[in-house]
Each structure stands twice: as C-alpha cells, then as structure tokens.
Simulated scan of single mutants.
Amino acid sequence: MSHDDTYRRLISLLDDTATPYRLIDHVPEGTTETVSALRGHPVSQAAKCLVLRVKLDRRTTRHVLVVVPGDRRVDLDAVRGLFAARYVGVSDAATAERLARAVPGTVLPFSFDPDLELVADPEVVTQPQLYFNAARLDRSLAIAGPDYERLAQPRVEKIAGPPASAG
C-alpha cells in the first residue's frame, strides 16, 4: 500500500461510515508544534503518533503505534508496563514507514496493518476535535475524539507523560 493509498483508505473509511471530518490544506509540515500553528489549534488537540518497538523477551518483538496529545511525551515506562516488556524504544524509520504506511510526520492515529497494535491515551479520545496529518505533509484532518475512538478502536491506556516542554 502506497502512502497515497493510505490517505485514500482513511478518507474511504470516514466517508463509508458517514463520520464527520474536515480536511485542512497547508504548506508541507510534519512537526506537531508547527503544523498545529498552521492549522490554528492548540498543540494539545494534535494527535502525536509514534511507532514503538516493544521487546517482550529475547525472541519476541512487537510494534505498537502509540497516540498521545501533541503537547505530551510518550511515557515509555508506561508502555513497557502495559506489555510486560523488557525494552521499549522508537522503531527505526524504515520499519515505522512500512507498518504505518506513511512517512514520519504523516503517521495516522489508525493502524491498517495487523502487525501494528494501536494504543491511544485517554486524553486523545476525549478531544472535542482531534487534528493530525492525513498521511500527507500538506493535508491534515480534524475529527471528533469519540468518532476517532469508534473508528480506530485503539486500546485506550494512560501512556502520555508530562508535557513535551517540561524538563
């Protein structure tokens, strides 16, 4: 599946389920803080998406797409605890792109790959409006948090750490 296919699959999912959404075109940007300013919303309403490598033991590795509010960090210790893992870290770019079917900066808060488990923080699914790049650097999407939860069906767990600006 190409990145353009990922975009089309997302739009088809939204249209086929009659889910309200809004597309926002902007200059190409993948940094959460910068693109939030371009879209005109608080960074806390952005969906920050990271693909993590979760090593359960010496032989077993899983990949997890985590989604936290844009102004928060991912609490890797919380993710490690959820999976009783030995190690949790950010996946390499090639693996993340293959599993998320999108380039870094455009990863959707949806998983279209059975090998990529989806975990979202409760603060994401309760947002009145949730914003994210729509598998493209030049187009974003706004959707209600509860609609996102209904469609994406993430495992909802407390995985957000302190705000990204906190020391």
Rank of each mutant, 00 (worst) to 15 (best):
P162F: 05
S140N: 02
V54C: 03
V156D: 00
D16L: 15
P128N: 11
D57Q: 09
F110D: 00
R8N: 13
D92I: 04
H41E: 14
R9D: 08
A144M: 02
L118G: 13
A166G: 03
T34G: 02
P20Y: 05
A93L: 06
T19M: 07
R155Y: 00
E33M: 12
N133C: 09
R59K: 11
A18C: 14
R86L: 15
Q153F: 07
P122C: 05
G105V: 02
N133T: 08
E149S: 15
P42K: 09
S36A: 15
P162N: 09
Y131W: 05
L14Y: 08
P114H: 13
A142P: 01
R62T: 11
T34E: 12
T60G: 01
A78W: 00
D57K: 09
S165F: 09
R8I: 06
R73K: 11
V54Q: 04
A46V: 05
D113E: 09
A134D: 12
E117F: 10
D113K: 00
T31M: 13
G81C: 11
P114T: 12
T61Y: 05
S165W: 12
F132C: 01
S111A: 12
C49L: 02
D92C: 04
L10C: 03
A135F: 04
V124I: 15
D121E: 04
L38S: 15
I11G: 08
G105I: 03
E157H: 12
L52D: 01
K55S: 12
E97R: 15
D138M: 04
P146E: 06
D4E: 15
A135G: 09
D15F: 05
A102H: 03
E29C: 14
A144G: 08
F112A: 05
L130W: 00
D121A: 06
R22F: 00
D138W: 05
L108N: 03
